[in-house]
Structures are given as structure tokens and as C-alpha cells.
Simulated assay, not measured.
Amino acid sequence: MDKQIYDEMIENLYWAFPLLKTKLVKPFDKEEKEKENDLTGTHMTILFMVKEKGSICISEIGKHLGICKANLTPLVQKLIDKSYIERFVDDKDRRYTFIKLTSVGEDFLDNKRYKVQEFLKQKVSDLSEADLMTLSASVAGLREILMKIK
């Protein structure tokens, strides 16, 4: 592949991720912190992983996030203390501990998703319809391609 294509792609990625963070993520996080939400991004990632999988082994979360068990335990415990998840042991092999969302956790994530959607709608409301279509297609394409990267 042409070196110029790689260089352009890397340059675009170099600028895209910080822009996403400063334009969308940080303003939302700031708004949420003002509402005294004491969960970190890692807590939210754990919750979204559990929602996606239904139930997940704690060690699998650690491997995916690159977090050792000693650091993962207090993160999971905080979510248990908030009644967002519950822990259970595999009946077939008691060495494996799993977690799953509770109804409180489901409601919390549904509410969070709604808040994010409303925030993002407001942030992009000044864009033209053509820009919105371009943004939507670009994000969908980026997601599709990123899923292919090993």
C-alpha cells in the first residue's frame, strides 16, 4: 500500500481521537461529574461489557482491560455496592467468578444511554443534514474497520 495513504490515515487518527474527546467526551463527563456521579470510565466500560455479554467472568474483564485482579476487585466491588451488578460462582467450576447486571444496573445503563443520546443530539444539532449524514457514515465506517483490527 502507498506510504502516503498510511501517512494520511495516521495523521487523521492522530487528530480524530483527541477531537472526539475534547468535543464530545469531556463535556459530557464534566456535566455528569457535576451531578455527583462517582463512577469512572473504567466502571462504565465494565458495565457495558457485562450488558453486552449477559454475564462475564471477572478474569475475562481483566484480560480485556489489561487490569490485574488486585486492581479490578475494588472496581467490581463498587459496582456491587451500588447494586448495579451481582457476583456469582460457576456451578461447574467454582474457580471462576462471574458478574451480571441487576435490574438496578439495567435501569442505570438505560438512563445513561438516554442522557448520552440527548447530549450528543444537542452537540450536533447545529450541523447541516449533509454533515450529519457524513458524520454518521464516517463513524459507522470507522467502527466497522476498527472491529476488523486484531
Rank of each mutant, 00 (worst) to 15 (best):
F17V: 11
G66M: 00
F48Y: 13
D38E: 15
I10W: 15
M9T: 10
T22E: 05
I61M: 07
G62M: 06
H64T: 09
K69A: 12
M49Y: 11
S59Y: 10
S55R: 13
V50W: 11
F17R: 08
K23I: 05
I5Y: 11
S59A: 10
K69G: 09
Q4H: 10
K23W: 10
F48R: 13
K63I: 02
T45A: 15
I61A: 05
G41H: 08
K51Q: 11
K21M: 10
E60Q: 06
T22F: 04
L39H: 05
L39V: 05
K35P: 08
E31H: 06
D29V: 13
M9R: 10
I5Q: 04
G54Y: 00
C57M: 12
M9Y: 14
I58W: 00
K3L: 09
H64W: 06
C68N: 14
M9N: 12
D7V: 04
L20M: 13
K69I: 06
C68Q: 13
L13Q: 09
Q4C: 08
E31V: 07
N37V: 11
F17P: 07
C68F: 12
K26D: 14
I58G: 00
I46L: 01
L47I: 05
K63W: 05
C57W: 12
I56K: 01
S59T: 10
D38L: 12
L13P: 02
I56R: 03
G62P: 06
I61P: 05
D38H: 14
T42H: 01
C68P: 09
L39I: 12
L19S: 14
M9K: 09
F28Q: 03
I56P: 01
E31Y: 08
M49E: 05
M44Y: 15
L39F: 11
S55T: 08
K69E: 13
K3S: 09
I61E: 00
T45S: 14
V50G: 07
I10K: 14
L20T: 03
L24H: 03
S55A: 07
L65M: 04
Q4K: 13
E8K: 09
E52W: 04
G54I: 03
G41W: 05
E11Y: 15
T45E: 15
E34H: 10
E60H: 03
F17M: 12
K63P: 01
C68I: 11
P27W: 03
M44P: 02
E60T: 03
I58V: 04
L47D: 07
E11M: 10
K23N: 05
N37M: 11
M44L: 15
K21L: 09
P27S: 01
G41I: 04
K35I: 06
T22Y: 04
W15M: 13
E31A: 09
L65H: 01
D38K: 15
K33C: 01
